[in-house]
Simulated scan of single mutants.
Amino acid sequence: MSFALEVKSEVLAHEFDENLSKCFLAGFIKYNGDLIFSNNKEKLRLTSNSNKIARSIFKLCKQNFSGLINIGISQAKNSNKVTTYYIILEGQISVFLQSLNVVDKNQIKIVEFIFDFKKLSKDLVKNLKRAYIAGVFVAIGSVNSPNTTNYHLELQFKDLASAKYWVVLLKDFNFEFKVLKRSEKLYISYIKKSLLVSDFLKLIDAYQCVMEFENARISREFHNNINRTNNVDVYNNKKALVVGLKQVDQISKIQSKIASSQLSIKAQALMELRIENPDASYSELTNKMIEKGFIITKSGISNLFKIIHKLSEEL
């Protein structure tokens, strides 16, 4: 099961009361439903590639639609053999769609989410909008698996007005969806930041998937941080070795000229340590000098090497 399907299945596993189920169906049917005519009868067809989702939508339709509801199945003959589940509603389709504010009296699709909110509290209105948003996502949404390196959640709209309204609607919940035109009849509204994807899953009450998403994200970032740290360590070790070998060369020049006596005992001790430890960092050399009884700091090590370098240049 894909992660997107997991999200949709979790959303539909919740219990919806009458108002929430209507709002959810409004969002789902508005972008999934197709009006068809058969035997001079108007019918509404809903589709899904998931048996679990189809059964959940069938249940919600039975709660809100008084007409006849049938389920059909078809399987593609290509190599993918994708199974499609159809839910066919027969009866007073126009009345049903108008009751959900999917279409107006002229059978024109209503883009905005419209319900009579005047007598409802702000919290209830917010929950109704969340149910509507969840319905739209289950109908036309998708989200990448958290195990991929690319965080991406999108919805595919057939018209620009719907895509733009989605952006406006989600701004009320502090989301900044973007819109991309993919073709004449396909507009993508999407978010990419991992925190936004996670917050959207919370918005539609897919909390188990939020946990899965966050665990995968945190695990990946943890390993990425380890890799970055290791890369920095490798770079620093290489840098320390290059500096150390250069200093060994300077020390060898001083010793070949029998000029070590021109330096302090502390500097001579440091030269011996450097020859023995060409790849040691200044911090490591500081500790080794202290073990030998010399009181010195990391900056003191640096100053001594500057003196050693100056003497080697003079020689």
Rank of each mutant, 00 (worst) to 15 (best):
A4H: 06
A4V: 04
L5V: 06
K8E: 14
E10T: 11
E10D: 03
N19T: 02
N19D: 14
S21M: 12
C23Q: 15
F24V: 01
K30G: 15
N32K: 15
G33Y: 13
G33V: 07
D34K: 12
L35C: 05
L35W: 05
N39D: 11
K41I: 01
L44H: 06
R45I: 10
T47W: 07
T47N: 04
S48P: 10
S50V: 02
K52N: 09
K52T: 15
K59D: 11
K59H: 12
K62P: 04
Q63F: 01
N64D: 12
L68Y: 10
L68Q: 13
L68C: 13
G72M: 03
S74L: 02
S74D: 04
S74Y: 02
S74C: 02
Q75H: 02
Q75L: 05
Q75S: 10
A76V: 01
N78W: 02
V82L: 09
T84Y: 11
Y86C: 02
I87R: 04
I87Y: 08
I87P: 13
L89D: 01
L89V: 01
E90F: 05
Q92M: 09
I93Y: 11
F96W: 08
F96S: 11
Q98C: 15
S99T: 12
K105M: 11
E112D: 13
F115M: 13
K119I: 00
L120G: 01
L128N: 05
L128G: 05
I133N: 04
I133S: 06
A134F: 07
G135L: 08
G135A: 13
V136N: 14
F137M: 09
V138R: 14
G141I: 08
L153S: 05
L153Q: 09
L155H: 02
Q156F: 05
K158P: 09
L160P: 00
A161G: 00
V167F: 00
F177L: 13
K178R: 14
V179L: 02
V179H: 04
V179S: 09
S183E: 15
S183T: 14
Y187V: 06
L195Q: 13
D199F: 00
D199C: 09
Y207Q: 15
Q208H: 15
F213T: 04
F213M: 09
F213G: 11
E214F: 04
R217W: 11
H223C: 00
H223Y: 14
N224W: 04
N230G: 09
N230C: 02
V232W: 08
Y235R: 10
Y235K: 11
L241E: 04
L241R: 14
Q247V: 04
V248W: 01
D249N: 15
I251L: 06
I251W: 01
S252Y: 10
S256G: 15
K257M: 00
I258Y: 07
S260K: 12
L263R: 12
S264I: 00
K266V: 00
Q268E: 01
M271P: 07
L273A: 03
I275A: 06
E276A: 12
Y282Q: 10
I290Q: 10
I296D: 07
I296V: 15
T297D: 13
K298H: 08
S299D: 07
S299N: 12
G300N: 07
G300T: 04
N303Q: 13
F305D: 00
I307T: 10
I307P: 00
H309M: 03
L311I: 01
E313I: 09
L315Q: 03
